[in-house]
Design a protein around this nucleic acid. Structure first.
Lengths: 342, 342
DNA sequence: CTTGGTCTCCAAAGCGCTTTGAAGGGATTT
DNA sequence: AAATCCCTTCAAAGCGCTTTGGAGACCAAG
């Protein structure tokens, strides 16, 4: 039988009120009593029942991570790193992380249930689409949230953290143009995701600024797998004239593209250049590849860590319209990007 | 203001008891009343407060996944896939998944807190070491758990699901021996993990059975990253005579090994063979590599899904000593493994 | 008519904590 | 010595649900 507040109070000859206040740091308790209580609590192994606290206070001490099962390609390495970052920040705060896998066809009801059941104080939303309906829903329901990414033209203010996808791909594309490339392909992420849209914009803008017209045959959208990368790259490299540079949406995609380049008997960094977006996975290092991979780099784990931090502020009452962070993205040039061949 | 049981009962002109029973399917309620209640509940948008239920019943409807931050290399792709499998199974059951990141140096206290705070009904333990102290601790604490993997000689019975790592590496090694290889290297997982020990045993046994002595210079332990794979493979390939075949502990390792082979001017599948363990990541397909990768294959996502299922049985009262599953591992031969060179 | 058994339904007592409103007691004022 | 304050501590009322132990109502059986 676990030690409960009542029993602890009885053994100390104090009321539950006093013991509770002593342990929670309220001022109405003398220092001597407080010390006596804390010592007894430790000695007797008292651990409060989280559910009783939750019921009594209305606070839960937990946040949810809504994971759209389809949309984020069944978790995947990105989500895992992201989650890891959040966990790292929140572990020390005694805040629980509730993973809520959500079916795509049950999305809004699932969020409604989550909100009404009082299982979390707030949620982290990821993989937003440009007109994501979750924003308004959660706002209506009064469940605080932070979006990892952005939507386009939401009717209400919301908290978000995003990386500058548009800027990153604008720069990467411009850099390739500077190197003399004219046929630059782009293997982007899923077309329904805002970040993919932003990347597309940056890419197109860079081309247009130089008077080039984006060629639809050099633009592809899909999930971040080596297979998708391989397929698209292969078909693009069959074109004539073929692209001399390829932008890859992820390191997974890049592996597939790399394979297609080799399969076509070409050499990466000489015949074909590539810049890939790197979310910084500890187990797949762009620097270690051969040739080393030029990347637009932004640690998704760091983003998770920061979102954990912002979450604490949000829960502490910081207004949502003051929680906006747009992170710049590094362009790291390595061997995979070189001058356009003659 | 959310709809609560009390208010719902008032509007229906029934007692809380009856409404509660109607909604929870108890027999002491007439069919007509039950229907009337359910309809009203839906119409009025009633959602029970999870914390009140938890406090009243003592059950939580949540399981924890203890993630040793260090040990499982900060989540990583394995954990992510595994988690995903569990989530897939448990999402439909309205069971919450609590991710509990745990610092290595705070491991046992953290489990104690988890157990005493009543935040979860049970936990999933992963990445066990051969003499994992968590087993006994949780048993003592009375917190049910399922281990993904095994330990050696635990003093108490426990529920587990594991894959046959020993058998898998025994077979893979034997197969390479059949192909004429004699110097077979093994780049294993972290040395303190049971699964790595099992793989080591399978590998050694296969060699020993053919009268060969395992060469310590061909045996390495480390985390599953491309870099580790590259480094170890590179130094091994510098030996003379060099190994003609390499067993890789993961697909990440395999990518690094592959790179080292190419960097040494050798050809995978001809000069050097490789068989890697494949946990089946949807974004990194062994079949798609060039050359395609021979693997020992077992879906870690499927294991997660099954553990979700076993968890339901465990919570339903199935005795732990009846929950043991050892999964066989497929050997999938592709192009990366060929006959030993002359 | 009673008695006994079935169906339905209910009042009230928890679950283990927080928090409000108040009271006891000593020190300080008047 | 009475009045006033502050410092500590407490009893009791929730938080929103489940569950125990009955209690009416209605029917068939004695």
């Amino acid at each position: 039988m676990a030690m409960r507040l009542k029993e602890l109070a009885r053994q100390l000859g104090l009321s539950q009120t006093t013991v509770s206040r002593a342990l929670n740091g309220y001022p109405e308790v003398s220092e001597t009593t407080r010390r006596r209580v804390s010592e007894a609590a430790i000695r007797l192994g008292y651990r409060p029942n989280a559910n009783a606290i939750r019921l009594a206070t209305g606070r839960v001490g937990a946040i949810g991570i809504a994971l759209p099962l389809e949309r984020s390609q069944h978790f995947g390495p990105h989500t895992s790193e992201f989650l890891s970052g959040i966990g790292e920040r929140l572990a020390a705060e005694e805040i629980d992380i509730l993973v809520a896998p959500i079916d795509a066809d049950d999305e809004l009801p699932a969020h409604r249930r989550l909100a009404a059941s009082h299982r979390v104080d707030a949620v982290v939303l990821s993989a937003p689409s440009p007109d994501d309906p979750r924003i308004e829903l959660l706002t209506d329901l009064g469940l605080p949230f932070i979006l990892h990414g952005r939507t386009e033209g939401a009717a209400v203010p919301y908290a978000w953290l995003d990386i500058d996808n548009e800027g990153a791909f604008h720069r990467a594309t411009s850099h390739l143009l500077d190197l003399g490339h004219r046929r630059i392909a782009m293997i982007n992420g899923p077309a329904d995701q805002t970040f993919a849209l932003h990347r597309d914009r940056g890419y197109r803008a860079a081309l247009t600024e130089r008077g080039l017209t984006p060629d639809p045959r050099l633009i592809a959208f899909g999930r971040f797998t080596d297979e998708i990368g391989f397929r698209f790259a292969q078909s693009m490299l069959e074109q004539s004239p073929r692209p001399t540079a390829i932008l890859a949406g992820s390191m997974m995609t890049a592996l597939g593209v790399f394979r297609a380049i080799r399969a076509a008997g070409l050499e990466l960094g000489r015949d074909v250049s590539m810049i890939a977006h790197d979310d910084v996975f500890p187990y797949l290092n762009a620097d270690n590849m051969v040739p080393s991979m030029s990347t637009t780099r932004s640690s998704i784990r760091a983003a998770g860590y920061r979102i954990g931090e912002l979450m604490l502020q949000l829960l502490a009452g910081k207004p949502v319209d003051t929680i906006h962070e747009l992170w710049p993205v590094e362009l790291v040039l390595r061997q995979s990007s070189g001058p356009a061949p003659e």
